[in-house]
Simulated assay, not measured.
Amino acid sequence: MTGDAAHRDAAASFDPLRPRLARVAYRMLGSVADAEDVLQEAFIRWMRTDRSEVREPEAFLRRTVTRLCLDQLKSARRQRETYIGPWLPEPVIEEEEEEDVTLPLMLALERLSPLERAAFLLHDVFGLGFEEIAATIQRDPAACRQLASRARTHVREARPRFQVEKERGLEIADAFFSASRSGDMTALGAMLAADVSIHSDGGGKRPAAMRPILGFDRVLEVHKGLAAMFRKQGSTLVRTAMINGLPGFVTREGDGELQTTALQIEDGMVAAIYVMRNPDKLRHLH
C-alpha cells in the first residue's frame, strides 16, 4: 500500500473516533494543544499498526491515547510546578446540552495521581469496565477499582450539587457581563454568593491575580476597579456560551485579546468565577 493510500485507510477508521478520543485526551490533560499532540501521535501509531489484527479499533485507540496521556502528565506536572499564578484548564466551548466534566471537577482531577485520574475518568465518566481499564493502564482490575474509589472520594465535593439549566445559566452569564462592565455593583452584588471566589489565569503573559480572590466584599471591590478599567479600555461581548460545562462568556478586551469567564452557579447564585487570560490557552478559540 502506498503512503497516501495507507494514510487514507488509517484515517477512514480513525477520524470517526476522533471526537471521542479527543474527549478522553482533553479531560486527562486539561490542554487542547496537548490533547491534539496526543491524537496526532496516536494516529501515527495507528497508521503503523497491522489494523487487520485489531478486533476493536475504538478500545485499541482509547488505550493508546490514555497511555500517551499518562506519559504526558508526568512532564505536565513538572511544568505546573513553575507556572505563574493559578493554573486553569484551557477553555473549551461546549455545544452539547450537558457536560460530564465541569471546570471545578477538572481542577479537582489535577490533585489526583495520573493513574487515579485515568481510572476515574475511564470508569465514572466514560463508563468502561475495570477489566478494560486494567488492560489500558496495565494494573489488575482490583487495583483499578481502588484507584477509582480513591479518586471518587477526592473529587466528590467538586461534583455540581445544584445543576443550573443551560438557558438559565446563560441568562445569568449575560446579566453578569452587563453588570460587571457597566459598573452596576448593586445588580452584580445581587448575583454573588457570600463565599464567592475569583480564579484568574494569566500564565505570566497578561495581568491576573496571583492568588484566588475570596469572599463577597473582596470580589465586589475587585469588580468596582475592573468596571472603571472597562469603561476606559473597553470590553466587548463576543458570545455567551457553556465553557467547560459552566455558563459564561467570551469577550475581547481592551488589549485586543480574547478572554473567557466561566461562572459556577449554586442555588441560583454565582459561587465562583473562572477567568482565562493566558493568550497561549486561548489560541484555539480564534
Rank of each mutant, 00 (worst) to 15 (best):
R55G: 12
P57C: 03
L73I: 09
R62S: 09
A33P: 01
A33Q: 11
R45V: 10
R55P: 11
D9E: 15
A22Q: 13
E41Y: 02
P19Y: 05
R63G: 10
R45N: 01
M47Q: 11
E58V: 07
R62A: 11
R67L: 04
E56M: 12
Y26H: 11
R27H: 15
E36T: 10
I44S: 15
V24N: 05
D71A: 14
R77T: 08
R51V: 02
L73N: 05
V65T: 07
V54N: 00
R78G: 14
E36C: 05
R48N: 14
V38G: 08
L29E: 03
Q40T: 15
R27L: 13
S31G: 04
I44W: 13
A42Y: 08
R20S: 15
R20A: 06
C69E: 03
R67D: 03
D9V: 13
V32D: 06
R45T: 08
D34N: 10
A33F: 03
V38E: 01
R63P: 08
V24Y: 04
L29N: 08
P16A: 04
V65P: 03
L17Q: 05
V54L: 07
S75I: 14
P19G: 04
R78S: 14
L17F: 07
R78K: 15
A76F: 05
C69Q: 02
R45W: 07
E41N: 10
R62V: 08
Q72F: 11
R51K: 05
A11E: 12
L39K: 02
L21A: 04
D34A: 15
C69K: 03
S13I: 13
M47F: 14
E56C: 05
R8C: 10
S13D: 13
L39I: 01
T64A: 11
S52Q: 12
R78M: 10
R48D: 12
C69F: 00
S13C: 14
L73C: 02
P19F: 04
R63S: 14
R77V: 04
A22I: 04
L68S: 00
L39Q: 00
V32K: 06
A6S: 09
A11V: 12
L39G: 03
L29F: 02
F60E: 10
E58W: 09
R45Q: 13
D37F: 06
T49H: 10
D50A: 14
A6L: 15
F60W: 12
R23A: 15
A59V: 10
R67I: 01
H7G: 10
A25Y: 04
R78I: 15
Y26C: 12
A33G: 00
V24G: 03
L29S: 02
C69S: 07
A12S: 13
S13L: 13
R51D: 01
L39Y: 05
A10L: 05
E58R: 10
W46I: 02
A12C: 01
D37C: 06
A11P: 04
V65W: 01
R78W: 08
S31E: 02
R48K: 14
R51N: 11
M47N: 11
L39S: 01
A35W: 00
R48V: 11
A5D: 08
L17H: 12
R45Y: 07
A76P: 01
R77P: 00
R8P: 02
L21Y: 09
K74A: 15
